[in-house]
């Protein structure tokens, strides 16, 4: 485990749990019931991650739940997955409102909103090349932060850039929720069944790498977290009958650019302004001025790639998000 040396007096790393002591499971974090919320996007494997965590916990004789919550389902749309892990039978089917652990699989999703309900003394596990301290400061969180550059781990394990398995390793290592051996076993079994033994071994290696590369830290003096200012929703008496919206263009308030995992790189010098991209873009994200393409509106572009596919020149090319 790396430590964040020389980072100042108020932030310490190497919390005395996790990989360093081959944790004894749930008791390590001193709770009867641990609740985990995963933030990812459709296709990034948050749901799979939650399921594998559940299988690993089962191997340790723990009671588990793994479930997910979708909005309009679509590859790239933000999704939530949940785990409950406990020593005894879990009977609640209520939503997880105040998780102990939040895992953010997609670095672009990291903003204060992911802290919603997260206990002040909880864990925030983030896929990012940044340090735990930078993350803690960025979202003003007072609990324990773990970070892992999952893309680097995947590269090293010769896997496609999927973050869920490395993040599973980071989660288990940081919280001590699951022993490494149980997690490796669950990962191996899952991937051997679906993708064969070689892929399974690579994924186990990703868990191992994550275990050693995860960075963990927390404030010595837990500071107070700022209250999230949730915008108030209307009461039932205030709603228009049948949900009619009289405000045109309200979709403008809904920034779908967050869904993107790759974006169209526009080369002005290659463009002949045929405007095929403008016609085909399902989100009016192609910006124009007097019949000339001026750029891409990345606040709304979901990264579907249709514009690049219909471009007759090389003016648009899809590039992975960073």
């Amino acid at each position: 485990m790396q430590t964040e040396l020389g980072s100042g007096v108020d932030f310490y790393v190497n919390k005395a749990i996790g990989s360093a002591m081959e944790s004894p499971g749930v008791e390590a974090i001193g709770a009867e019931l641990v609740e985990v919320r995963w933030h990812g996007r459709g296709g990034q494997g948050a749901v799979t991650g939650a399921k594998i965590l559940a299988r690993a916990a089962t191997k340790e004789g723990l009671w588990i739940q793994a479930f997910s919550e979708f909005g309009p389902e679509r590859r790239g749309a933000p999704v939530l997955a949940f785990n409950r892990i406990g020593a005894n039978e879990i009977r609640t089917y209520a939503p997880v409102e105040e998780p102990d652990v939040v895992v953010v699989i997609d670095p672009a999703l990291l903003e204060r909103a992911v802290l919603r309900g997260l206990k002040a003394e909880g864990w925030l596990v983030v896929n990012t090349p940044f340090s735990p301290r930078q993350v803690a400061r960025n979202v003003s969180f007072s609990g324990t932060v773990a970070t892992l550059d999952a893309a680097a781990v995947s590269r090293e394990a010769s896997l496609p850039p999927l973050a869920n398995i490395p993040m599973l390793g980071a989660l288990a290592a940081a919280t001590g929720l699951i022993q490494r051996s149980a997690l490796e076993e669950a990962v191996f079994e899952t991937f051997r069944a679906s993708l064969g033994e070689e892929t399974a071994r690579k994924n186990v290696r990703a868990v191992n790498l994550a275990w050693s590369q995860v960075r963990i830290g927390h404030y010595l003096d837990p500071g107070s977290t700022e209250e999230e200012n949730e915008c108030a929703l209307p009461s039932w008496q205030e709603l228009e009958p049948g949900g009619t919206l009289y405000q045109p263009g309200s979709a403008r308030d809904y920034l779908t650019g967050m869904w993107r995992s790759s974006y169209p790189l526009f080369k002005r010098e290659e463009c002949n302004d045929c405007l095929r991209c403008w016609v085909f873009c399902p989100d009016t994200s192609i910006m124009t001025n007097e019949g000339k393409v001026t750029g891409i509106d990345l606040q709304y572009c979901k990264g579907c790639g249709v514009c690049a596919a219909v471009c007759p020149r090389d003016a648009l090319k899809m590039v992975p998000e960073n």
């Binding site: 909005g71 309009p72 929703l233 209307p234 009461s235 039932w236 709603l239 049948g242 949900g243 009619t244 919206l245 009289y246 045109p248 309200s250």
Partner: peptide, 16 residues
Amino acid sequence: PATMGALALQNYYLEF
């Protein structure tokens, strides 16, 4: 102009 039949998920459906 008006929009009718818009999506109302967990945070709105109950109120409707």
